[in-house]
Amino acid sequence: MNIFRLAGDMTHLLSILVLLLKIYATKSCSGISRKTQELYAIVFVARYLDLFTDFISVYNTFMKVVFIASSLAIVWCMRFHPMVRRSYDRELDTFRHYFLVGASFALALILHEKFTVQEIFWAFSIYLEAVAILPQLVLLQRSGNVDNLTGQYIFFLGAYRAFYILNWIYRYLTEPHFTRWIACVSGVVQTALYADFFYYYFISWKNNSKLKLPA
């Protein structure tokens, strides 16, 4: 565990806390893509199948359980909580997210480290996570206005990805056999998807104005 990896995990955790805070405090999920949240729930469940087969550390197990539980809780709130579900921007959240699931799974069947159920689901989760933010970015683009907590949620998610890249660079330089092509290449693609959002986030921060995305 290096400082970049820890910072990445903490910003990831923080992003989820910000999202939960928004939903809990405002009883609203406006501006949040349920499709992206469902993709994250699939990502965590598919990736952490090793929860039952490999023990790495208490920290690792704890974080995995937190990520699975929080992503399922968010999806549950957006679908079934009587007040939260009413604020869902259904007509803006129209991205065909099943295509992403299908394409990621097909890619995982072709590109994986080993041809086992666990490894294929692991690769699938990596590919799906890389593109899972797309429905959210499309929703923001369509609604134009971004409220503070939603903006911070996406900012922390992007920061988590950026820290993971620094973590891989650090590991590549310090560990003799660190080669993880599937995770690293997908991670770079995933981070690149945030570039546009970051650009507008920093502009609004610099001008001390409300975050707005161009139509």
Binding site: R5, H12, D54, I56, N60, K64, F67, W122, H177
Partner: peptide
């Protein structure tokens, strides 16, 4: 060798 395939990241 086993250590290389252990997925220690989240």
């Amino acid at each position: 060798v086993k250590n290389q395939v252990v997925k220690d990241e989240l």
